[in-house]
Amino acid sequence: MDKLDCNKEIIQLMHIYLDGDISMDDEAKLRKHLEDCSDCQKYFHELKRTITLVKSVEQVEALPTLLKR
């Protein structure tokens, strides 16, 4: 299913971007590649969506009774 034909370098750039560490040059490179490659676009979208999904998890409702025993 995964099309990792595009080099690992681009995927690495996606992660660096997601960490907020990307340089302007690398960001331009990533952007340019994403414009041309629909597989990588999809991959990048999935990574960003993963983060959104993880962040959407609400606080669990069970409340602690710490130090009350």
């Binding site: 995964d2 690495q12 992660h15 997601l18 960490d19 560490d21 991959y43 999935e46 990574l47 969506r49 993963t50 983060i51 999904l53 993880v54």
Partner: peptide, 19 residues
């Protein structure tokens, strides 16, 4: 930290992509 975060994201991407 970065390596683990990258791998964690990759693993979750695979698990959550069909959601």
């Amino acid at each position: 930290v970065k390596t683990r975060l990258h791998r964690g994201r990759e693993a979750l991407r695979k698990k959550l992509r069909h959601v």
